[in-house]
Design a protein around this nucleic acid. Structure first.
Length: 641
RNA sequence: GGCGAUGUAGCUCAGCUGGUUAGAGCGCACGACUCAUAAUCGUGAGGUCCGGGGUUCAAGUCCCCGCAUCGCUACCA
């Protein structure tokens, strides 16, 4: 039996359509899985969608449909997005599937029976306006620090997983198995989390309030809340197919750093409580930071990476994502960087090597691959370089160093180009006596290209298959083929054709970017429906008093980093408004700005400073804020309707 | 405010447990070649390794202080 390998993406929450963040993780796991398959491993690649929760129930209601219909639609969007990106997953799990629910309930019951899930009358002191519970410590003089009103006693009975119990155990696991969470920086972060109490984890919600979820097996009035449902997908998919013994020991989770805590703390303790072994690795990657704030702001052309698939091709895009990110760290995304990478590595080095090889075979040998002639040191040296690559590449990939794996292959391609220059086949072609040498050079190039196509197949499956087809040797490949050096046999007919990777016109691209164009390619992802709030009558709206105000001062909040204490001129009166826009606007930008103020909002204390109103701002999906204003100046105090 | 990450050539980044003149790719300059996608090959220019202290025979690489950027968090009316 081949060595198993079980790779997972997080299951994606279906309250939004797929975007670049989902795509990167999924592509990463696709590449990891393909390398393992190439190496002959017994691979299972799982992805899926997370479909329960209050947000989804509400979104469905707003969209005028049922939760099930809603999640069916969005889940399908994910699947079609992955199909477009050529993701070769083996299994797709949805948390609404009966097979998953059955496993969740079974595990819950087991953990409950052994006493690790307890019933808690949580909170007690509940502020109706905040819609949240407060602890005694948080209250100021027995009142809500936000609204200054007395909280009422409420007993929302929830169940709690006794996570804190397992904190020492988890610390020990991380100490003895330093590789469990990698790269190391993330292991350290989790260890830091474990230095202080992690508390118990709320794992249920009253069914009355959140009907869309998996019922607790021992209490039908509650449904499972988030993590006990979602995280268990990694396990439930295997169990439902009877594959847990085969794959679980080889579990490799891949996640982005934003969900480190649930995967690094909740999940291992859950597994322990359920009496299940730990996963093998938790692999944590960073973010792609898309810069060019100026450009998007003034011209309105946000660079959307998914659009680039259309422009540069899926394979080139995948290559770039893996080549230009150091695993674990954040990377900055520039379209120009992508274009330069495509030109340098794929068009100039690799694509051109194919073009010149096929060109010479056509010109000197009628398009037919010859047998090796006599071989010299230079020929053997290139072969030796490639022969060492399968092991090196696999080693890098397993250490998560995708950038280095690709760099190593491209270094060999460079060496091949150097080899061609050194051996100068165009000179050999002039002397009939050296025909054997020429055969060797041409054949060597063909073998080098074949080997490259194998080594890069997991990253660029489509283009590498094309490459092999052009060499006249299509078909499935194994990692060992990269070192064989006999896979393009004598007599094979090669095929000239279009450039494998067309060069990008950088000058044109730069010109486009300066003009601020590039918005002609619309976003690929289908938008999820907007989650609407319940309809209101005009009278409801009339209750809100909106007025034009001018910011006259912006001061630091004495006790909060994200808040500005603004002085707003409303004409006859002046208000102090505390606003959480510090991350988006400087004091200089704010002073003198005309804004819209909610003037009849009940005053509230924000970390000690009383705010007399609220300033309107819009927030996009990325969390960027923009103040709402007027398109012509109007006297402060004017009412907005 | 607390915790953490990052700061190395114009750009994107490597530099493990401290050790000879600090590296790669791209870009740039010059040259060679012509099979090839104005590609390829060679040579070269370019760096106070954020700043300041300190430890050491020796620090980009360890310690302290500071600065900058970013993230998490204090739930941001």
């Amino acid at each position: 039996m081949a060595e198993p390998y079980y790779a997972t993406t997080p299951i994606f929450y279906v309250n939004a359509a797929p975007h670049i963040g989902h795509a990167y993780t999924t592509i990463l796991v696709d590449v990891a899985s393909r390398y393992q398959r190439l190496a002959g491993r017994d691979v299972r690649f799982l992805t899926g969608t997370d479909e329960h929760g209050e947000k989804i129930a509400k979104a469905a209601e707003a969209a005028g449909t049922t939760p099930q219909a809603y999640v069916d639609e969005v889940s399908a969007q994910f699947r079609s997005a992955w199909d477009e990106l050529g993701i070769a997953y083996d299994a797709f799990i949805r948390t609404t599937e009966p097979r998953h629910q059955a496993v969740v309930q079974e595990v819950l019951q087991r953990v409950y029976d052994q006493g690790d899930i307890i019933y808690g009358e949580y909170g007690g002191l509940y502020c109706v306006k905040c819609e949240r519970y407060y602890t005694e410590k948080e209250l100021e003089d027995g009142t809500c620090p936000q609204h200054g009103i007395a909280p009422e006693y409420r007993s929302e009975a929830n169940y709690f997983f006794r996570m804190e119990t397992y904190r020492p155990w988890l610390r020990e696991q991380l100490e003895t198995n330093p590789d469990l969470i990698r790269p190391e920086g993330y292991r350290n972060e989790v260890l830091a989390m474990l230095r202080e109490p992690i508390g118990d984890l709320s794992i249920s919600r009253p069914k009355a309030r959140v009907p869309w979820g998996i019922p607790l097996p021992w209490d039908e009035e509650h449904v499972t809340y988030v993590w006990f449902d979602a995280l268990l997908n990694y396990w439930s998919d295997l169990v439902s197919h009877g594959l847990e013994e085969r794959y679980w020991p080889a579990a490799e989770h891949f996640i982005a750093k934003d969900i480190l805590k649930p995967h690094g703390v909740f999940w291992p303790t859950m597994l322990k409580a359920a009496g299940l072994p730990l996963f093998r690795h938790l692999n944590v990657h960073g973010y792609w930071l898309v810069e060019d704030r100026k450009m998007s702001k003034s011209v309105g052309n946000v660079v959307r990476p998914l659009d680039l698939v259309d422009r540069y091709g899926n394979d080139a895009f995948r290559y770039f994502l893996l080549r230009d990110m150091r695993f674990g760290l954040d990377a900055s995304f520039h379209e120009l960087g992508l274009a330069e990478r495509v030109n340098a590595d794929l068009a100039n080095d690799l694509g051109n090597l194919l073009a010149r090889t096929v060109g010479m075979l056509g010109k000197y040998r009628g398009g037919v691959v010859p047998a090796f002639g006599p071989r010299e040191d230079a020929d053997r040296a290139l072969q030796a370089t490639f022969a060492a690559l399968p092991d090196a590449v696999l080693r890098h990939v397993e250490a998560l160093h995708y950038d280095e794996a690709l760099a190593a292959v491209m270094a060999a391609v460079s060496e091949a180009n150097r080899y061609v220059s050194d051996r100068a086949p165009w000179e050999l072609a002039k002397e009939a006596a050296r025909a054997g040498e020429l055969d060797t050079v041409l054949r060597t190039c063909a073998e080098a290209l074949y080997a490259t196509s194998v080594l890069l197949d997991p990253v660029m499956p489509e283009r590498m298959a094309t490459l092999r087809a052009r060499l006249g040797v299509p078909g499935d490949v194994h990692l060992d083929d990269a070192a064989a050096w006999d896979r393009v046999p004598e007599g094979t007919r090669v095929e000239a054709g279009e450039a494998l990777f067309p060069r990008v016109d950088l000058e044109a691209l730069k010109a486009t970017m300066e003009v601020g164009d590039g918005a002609d390619a619309p976003a690929e992802a289908v938008e999820a429906p907007l989650p609407h709030k319940p309809e209101i009558a005009i009278d409801d709206f009339a209750k809100v008093e909106l007025r034009v105000g001018t910011i006259t001062a912006a001061e630091d909040h004495p006790n909060a980093d994200r808040l500005w204490v603004l002085t707003v001129d409303l004409g006859p009166e002046t208000r102090t408004v505390v606003s959480g826009i510090k991350a988006h606007y400087t004091a200089e930008q704010l002073v003198g700005t005309t804004v819209i103020v909610v003037a009849n909002l009940a005053p509230a204390k924000l970390r000690g400073v009383t705010s007399q109103g609220m300033i309107l701002a819009a927030e996009d999906a990325e969390g960027t804020l923009s103040l709402a204003g007027l398109d012509r100046p109007l006297a402060p105090g004017s009412e907005v309707r």
